[in-house]
């Protein structure tokens, strides 16, 4: 076993396994601990300049990764025209910079605002550091190893599908530059941290709100025993 296998085959499975099991455990047995842990009440101005760029930037970029994973062919076809390739790559870098700015504001806020510092846990700083590494390595990759949207579909799409279908093959990753490897390795660290940090709030994104009725009324009645008693009266 070499480092490549350890980091890109063993680690992903360990990280995913822990993330899934602990998240399920937390969701069922420790639901009180799951929260977005918003600190907007305590400080709002810097949060505005940090939270919005970071969240939207990272969500769109992650969606881009997901698209390349799910429909790689369409990405390649899109990139067939250079102009469209530049457009895609520039959008990616722009969004990455947007997320980076947000992340820097959030880090600055967490470290300098008294009210925020007192409610910060060590894990909050770990998450911030991992996210910073993730965004910075991603930006370096996008800038120096062109064009990511091209080679991602050739290297990472098969690699990730291999992981997900239990036929892992990390060999194509071995010759990649350090930055890209770090970007991937760091993602697995984020996965490891997922269930133990505030990151779990990602899976609670409340899409059900779009369809649920406005009002929620919960009955403690209509229980079989009570109904029988009433019927006999």
């Amino acid at each position: 076993m070499n480092w490549n296998t350890l980091f890109f085959v063993i680690l992903p499975y360990v990280a995913l396994f822990i993330a899934i099991i602990v998240t399920i455990y937390r969701g069922i047995y420790r639901p009180f601990s799951i929260s977005s842990l918003s600190s907007q009440l305590l400080e709002r101005r810097r949060l505005f300049w940090g939270s919005i760029p970071f969240h939207w930037g990272i969500i769109i970029i992650l969606t881009g990764h997901l698209v390349a994973l799910l429909v790689p062919r369409s990405i390649v076809l899109w990139n067939a025209h250079p102009l469209r390739l530049y457009l895609l790559e520039l959008t990616g870098v722009g969004l990455g910079l947007w997320a980076l700015i947000g992340l820097l504001v959030l880090s600055w806020r967490r470290m300098t605002v008294d009210r925020i510092r007192v409610i910060s846990t060590p894990m909050d700083f770990v998450v911030l550091a991992l996210l910073l590494i993730s965004v910075v390595t991603g930006l370096i990759t996008a800038t120096y190893y062109r064009w990511g949207s091209y080679w991602f579909t050739g290297i990472f799409t098969p690699y990730i599908w291999g992981i997900l279908t239990f036929r892992p093959d990390a060999a194509p990753l071995a010759p990649l530059p350090f930055t890209i490897k770090l970007h991937v390795f760091n993602f697995y660290l984020l996965t490891l941290a997922f269930a133990f940090s505030r990151l779990v709030h990602i899976i609670t994104w409340p899409v059900g709100y779009l369809i649920r009725p406005w009002q929620i009324v919960i009955a403690n009645r209509g229980l079989p025993v009570l109904n029988e008693e009433e019927a006999s009266q």
Partner: peptide
């Protein structure tokens, strides 16, 4: 009877007890 907090909660965590 027509609480706005319940209607606004994305998680559906707020509710009105029937009893």
């Amino acid at each position: 009877l027509n609480p706005a907090c319940v209607a606004a909660c994305p998680s559906g965590a707020i509710y009105k007890r029937v009893e």
